[in-house]
Design a protein around this nucleic acid. Structure first.
Length: 881
DNA sequence: ATCTATGGCAAGCCGA
DNA sequence: TCGGCTTGCCAT
């Protein structure tokens, strides 16, 4: 390590100082090899036949917006700088004269000019005069204490990042193809023929012209081919001083001992650092893998940099926080010049000078992606568990710590990580890469941001883009709040802001032939049908006040179409009437079906979040009355549907938010109900599923439904919760299996006998301490930093504290495996416990409560089963001795 | 700079 | 001992 660093020298001329340091070091450690590390220079072309925009950024040097375009022919990134003289700006409601009078505004070093502009104020429903304050660079607008936006009383559109502002003004379609003609950026022609467009429009013949215009836009975006992007997955391994601690990427004290790179063309490389005393090992890697040995860590870094400067897309799993950050700081520590490092580090991100870095950890962490795109297939967020859940392959299991691995074991381990990282983007015909690109096209976000930010950013960006297109003033959050006020309904759950959905009281028991009807994407439908948007709810017109919402004092505008209603409504229609149907159309080639499935999935993700963000204070267009209007209309819809079903003589056994469970209705009864909904509510009610039979207890959100083919749907029951012990899950699944075999009411006796046996066997195993610690472990996630558990100390936190005492590092998101014990604390982490300490009675309680959720309906009694079991267990123990 | 919503259940904690 | 509160996980 160098004794002097850039930080403690406290100078600004880094380059000169680095050179000096380098020379010093050279003298000390001479001779020192310098590896070829070219400084990245973007190359610009003024002619390009077709390339897809992947990213937009602000180029500080030229003070212009820049684009990164992917050329599918050369499979390279091309750079383009804005040539339209677009500049950063914000808006003010003051006149030019008034602004000129403000101290330090026109005299601001970054100030350029004032322009009068007309905007449409959606909150007030009128055209207004605003003044555009134009500046030389984004930081002059905002981001500094002395910035222009701080000098005026009220600024609009001043917190939009410059490259987004550029995107909106240019109406740049991120993810779509463009050409460069004589230096100008030109949209590639629309690939859809007039015929195709007409065909699509025919599907939406009944819709309003505004809606059809949007559908035209969406289908143009979706029907355009999606390129397969050349990409590489990168992973590094580092030695660590303390085994249980992850090395700090900001310190980067330890050498990078292995790097793997796996690319989309099948190339696989592992670079290993030669170290003393490391054995070759016996593991054989596939023959096509390039295993390269290096004596010098700097040479490995040089190779990594080459790769980072070669691939248009670089994939990592947690590269923002670890791999790329570590590489950067390690390079700095080794005295490599900053300009030679092709990584641009932010506080939380690591971007690349050449391509796009996609951190898949961030993307898979996104709740909407987890739930709606992958239906909660993975719930833990390690590379291992995500890969296991989605790809069916996990990480290589390690018996020894990384620093002590042989070369071949280390290589295999490191290679595997990059392989599965790449596979996360390749499986199912590149589903994830396509999803990302389709989502970019809808939201107009650059790839780096889209993969890192959540749904509220996605929807915000999409909405902002439309505001600019239509010359709407983008409202300030506090203006919406002031104009529309807070929510008026009272939530059922304490601490919530407004009232949500209705859950219909279940009728306990077993019901045969249950038809489940639901509204196809209820909330987006409501937003569409009822013209809901921040500007249409509680609008300024007197004449609209009679157009009220059931159960609320709010009214909705009759004069103007709401922007979010149009956008969300048209996206909903495009999904439901086009892509969902085409994804299932067997007459289409499978690759097309696949693509359409990606599109409908992407839309599903966005639509399902569209209502939620309206009620989220963090959303820039947050509007509580709007959110509560959506749920109020939802409550009205389900309540009316239940009433109507009853009126038709159908028994409703359950319902939740957007669904009703009907007991053995006749087909004509169902059809009557569906027709009534279309007619009276204006919303499509459809048959979602049919159960051979369903089992309900008295609990809401807890039931079990058996399909005609014997498959079982389990909802909310303890037996399926992630954190319960494995032995319980197994026994529960055995019960489920028995229930799946029941064909008719008379078949229950046999199933019940099987279930009795399952429970008894389980009980006996518990009492006999036949289960392993792993089988008994509860696995509960640490939801926040340990120090923040101040109000109570839950059991998993107690167990975690014991692990911390034992020297282990515990962070948010970690899953603690612990068993219930008879000691004073009541718990112990599995790693520290022994089977003798296990509190059997606690587990019997668990067994009881898990099964009793279903026993009520089956007319089974836990105590009774245990009664027999106790006798049997006595006999069993007796025989044993 | 970042963060979609509410309803519902089980279990355990902790103060009255 | 009781009951409100906290926490995690799930349904929609």
């Amino acid at each position: 390590m160098r004794a002097r660093t850039l930080e403690n020298l406290n100078v600004t001329n880094y380059e000169a100082v680095e050179e000096e340091l380098f020379t010093e070091q050279q003298e000390r450690d001479a001779p020192l090899k310098r590896w070829e590390m070219p400084v990245f220079k973007a190359e610009y072309t003024d002619s390009l036949s077709q390339a897809y925009v992947l990213s937009v950024y602000y180029d500080g040097e030229s003070r212009r917006a820049g684009l990164k375009l992917y050329d599918p022919e050369t499979r390279k990134i091309h750079f383009w700088l804005d040539n339209t003289r677009h500049l950063p700006y914000c808006l003010s409601d003051l006149s030019i004269d008034e602004l000129t009078a403000i101290d330090g505004l026109t005299g601001h070093p970054g100030f350029i000019e004032l322009q009068a502009v007309k905007k449409y104020d959606a909150l007030e429903d009128r055209e207004i005069e605003m003044t555009k304050i134009v500046a030389k660079d984004p930081l002059s607008i905002g981001g500094r204490r002395s910035s222009i936006r701080e000098k005026i009383p009220k600024a609009w559109e001043a917190r939009i990042r410059y490259y987004d502002c550029y995107t909106f003004d240019r109406q740049l379609l991120l993810g779509m193809p463009y050409k460069i003609v004589k230096g100008d950026l030109v949209a590639d022609e629309d690939t859809l023929t007039r015929e195709a467009k007409d065909k699509i429009q025919n599907l939406f013949a009944g819709e309003a012209p505004e809606v059809r215009a949007y559908i035209d836009q969406w289908s143009t975006l979706f029907q355009c081919p999606i390129p397969s992007l050349r990409r590489v997955a990168v992973d590094i391994e580092v030695t660590s001083a303390v085994e249980t601690r992850v090395p700090d990427p900001r310190e980067a004290m330890n050498p990078i001992i292995a790097t793997s790179m796996v690319d989309s063309d099948g190339g696989r490389r592992v670079l290993l650092l030669r170290r003393e005393g490391v054995e070759e090992g016996t593991r054989r890697l596939p023959s096509d893998v390039d295993v390269e040995y290096y004596d010098d860590e700097e040479a490995i870094l040089a190779e990594i940099f080459k790769v980072l400067l070669e691939y248009p897309v670089v994939l990592t799993f947690n590269g923002d926080d670890f791999d790329l950050r570590y590489i950067y700081h390690r390079a700095m520590n080794l005295g490599i010049r900053r300009e030679s490092i092709p990584i641009v580090l932010g506080e939380r991100f690591a971007h690349l000078t050449y391509g796009i870095h996609v951190d898949l950890y961030k993307f898979f962490f996104n709740r909407s992606i987890q739930i709606y795109a992958f239906s909660q297939k993975y719930t833990e967020l390690s590379l291992d568990s995500v890969a296991k859940a989605i790809l069916g392959v996990g990480k290589v299991e390690l018996a020894t710590p990384i620093p002590q691995l042989s070369y071949s074991d280390l290589a295999a381990y490191c290679l595997n990580d990059s392989e599965i990282t790449l596979q996360l983007t390749s499986f199912d015909d590149e589903l994830v890469m396509k999803l990302i690109q389709v989502m970019m096209r809808i939201t107009k976000m650059r790839m780096e941001d889209l993969t890192r930010q959540g749904v509220s950013s996605w929807i915000r960006n999409l909405m902002y883009f439309e505001h600019r297109r239509l010359s709407y003033l983008i409202p300030r959050s506090d203006d919406i709040l002031e104009s529309k006020g807070k929510a008026t309904s009272e939530a059922i759950i304490k601490g919530k802001k407004f009232k949500g959905a209705i859950v219909v009281e279940p009728k306990p028991g077993i019901h045969f032939n249950v038809n489940v009807l639901d509204f196809a994407s209820l909330y987006p439908s409501i937003i569409k049908v009822h013209n809901l948007s921040y500007e249409t709810i509680l609008c300024t017109h007197k004449q609209c006040r009679t157009n009220t919402i059931p159960g609320l004092p709010h009214w909705i505008c009759k004069e103007r179409k709401g922007l979010s209603s149009l956008i969300i409504g048209s996206l909903r229609d495009t999904r439901v009437k086009m892509y969902k149907k085409m994804a299932k159309d067997r007459s289409l080639p499978t690759n097309l079906q696949n693509l359409y499935n990606v599109i409908q999935l992407t839309l599903k993700v966005l639509l399902n979040a569209s209502y939620g963000v309206m009620g989220a204070a963090s959303f820039n267009l947050y509007c509580p009355p709007l959110a509560e209007a959506v749920t109020a209309i939802g409550r009205y819809a389900i309540t009316k549907t239940v009433e109507k079903a009853n009126a038709f003589g159908i028994e409703v056994v359950y319902g939740d938010t957007d669904s009703v469970f009907l007991k053995a209705p006749t087909p004509s009864q169902v059809n009557e109900l569906l027709g009534w909904s279309e007619e009276e509510l204006g919303m499509e009610l459809e048959i979602d599923k049919v159960y051979r039979y369903a089992v309900f207890s008295h609990l809401k959100k807890n039931y079990l439904g058996v399909y005609p083919d014997g498959k079982v749907d389990i909802k909310g029951l303890m037996g399926k919760k992630r954190h319960i012990p494995a032995f319980l899950k197994r026994s529960f699944m055995e019960m489920v299996e028995a229930l799946g075999d029941v064909q008719s009411p008379s078949g229950f006796e046999e199933a019940k006998q099987r279930i009795r046996d399952v429970v008894r066997t389980c009980y006996k195993s518990l009492k006999g301490k036949a289960y392993s610690l792993d089988d008994l472990a509860l696995k509960v996630m640490i939801g926040k930093p340990l120090r923040r558990y101040v109000k109570t100390t839950p059991q998993h936190v107690k167990a975690a504290n014991l692990l911390v005492e034992a020297g282990q590092e515990i962070k948010t998101g970690d899953i603690i495996s612990f068993v219930k014990t008879t000691n004073a604390l009541g718990v112990k982490p599995v790693q520290l416990a022994s089977i003798r300490e296990v509190d059997v009675n606690k587990y019997v309680e668990y067994l009881k409560s898990t099964f009793e959720q279903v026993f009520d309906a089956l007319d089974l009694d836990f105590q009774e089963i245990m009664g027999i079991s106790k006798l049997e267990s006595f006999l069993w123990n007796y025989e044993d001795t």
